[in-house]
Design a protein around this nucleic acid. Sequence first.
DNA 1: ATTTTTAACTTGTAAATACAAGTTATTTTA
DNA 2: TAAAATAACTTGTATTTACAAGTTAAAAAT
Lengths: 235, 235
Amino acid sequence: MEKISLYQILYQKLRESIIKGEYNEGDLLPSENELCSQYQVTRPTVRQALSQLVNEGYVRKQQGKGSIVQQLNKGLKLLSIEGTTAAFEGEKFYSKILVQPSIVDWPQDFFYAINTQAESTNCIMLERLRTIESRNVIYEKTYITNKQMPRFTQKNLEDKSLFETLKKYYQIQITGGEQKIRAINADKHVAKLLQVLIGKSLLMLQRKMYTNRKDFFVYSLVYCDTEHYYIQDLF
Amino acid sequence: MEKISLYQILYQKLRESIIKGEYNEGDLLPSENELCSQYQVTRPTVRQALSQLVNEGYVRKQQGKGSIVQQLNKGLKLLSIEGTTAAFEGEKFYSKILVQPSIVDWPQDFFYAINTQAESTNCIMLERLRTIESRNVIYEKTYITNKQMPRFTQKNLEDKSLFETLKKYYQIQITGGEQKIRAINADKHVAKLLQVLIGKSLLMLQRKMYTNRKDFFVYSLVYCDTEHYYIQDLF
DNA sequence: ATTTTTAACTTGTAAATACAAGTTATTTTA
DNA sequence: TAAAATAACTTGTATTTACAAGTTAAAAAT
């Protein structure tokens, strides 16, 4: 079992409390001193946990007053270290596998530069469609470095988090990442999948996720129809 | 003169070093112990400064190895606490005032809910166009709470940062914020300003910036042509 | 010359302590 | 009763100390 630090335990508990709705927007979390008592830790440890909640936009702090819970889940949280499955927390959504994971060559003119010697000469590719309330909202193509990934192509990812699967079966953890964000006009293919008119404006994210494995990345190309679900960013 | 803490001084110096190009991508910053010696501060103070650089994507850390400089300025940094002027750092850009700051009523159906009693019954509005290398890239409409803002409408903001002006003359500091991100098809008005075809896909950001003043916000509606300059996000 | 072991670095986690500065509640004064 | 002053809370900043865990360099062994 992977070792988890005290501040990470506290961070997760507080985050879950917020996500579950135990606080309303504007409410104060317990004070730093109260959290020290409740969890038998010291103030720097509490502050480390709170700092992460602040960085992720769950909370903001006001000197002399407290840690104020910010609004949640009014938009999709795609702009974070979490995968698209986590971005839908609190929403009724479905994830459909359009193309099962299969081994392919890296596409030509890939949206990130690939070091095929260090990474792999080919990759595992899969395509998914995310649906909220009968609306196809996100179309996502994922490319994974094909290194030490036995039997991955047999994994069933329907309605499951790719990141959690990588972690559970392969001990691969996402540690950070980068993305390029653009607006594009839907071509025939993407328009059909997202059930919008050709030329409709879509958000396109080109994501590169770093992992705890050396030279091992997860790349995603995400098309998002933002008509009914905008992307939310807190900072 | 406003008091600035030790970790903030260190953070700014390191950040400037990175932005100026004193490091290449992949380079290591001086170690935490080295920074302690150089700046005569203790390790928690150094770590606080580094933590902010990590949060903003300038640096990532690897246990046992060091603080690794990440790539910079390959995209516009609009997804952060900084204003759009800061997003252009390292680029040759111009900021043109299309509509001088003037006092107007809050628009109907404003993209954020306004509490006119707590905020103000009207606001200061201005419109700017940002240009990189002869390309109109960003069109921005800004709405500022009209409270204790004497002579703001006479300020010259051409090629200047709004946030820095607010800070210098009104002691107003941006402390955080939120934004909704959508892709929209350009209408006639915006298409003309950004010099693109009607229907072209644009990024639209609806931003609400929090400040150190109670019930005082800065709202922006940002249209961005991402054809040549994508938005970059590190996380 | 190569491999293994050890040393010396690095960041990560955590506690203890102290004071500054902001907000709110309570007490005192007019 | 209202205003001012004070107390008690809050977060912000900073130091000191210690050990865990990862990476790299140097030394020792083969």
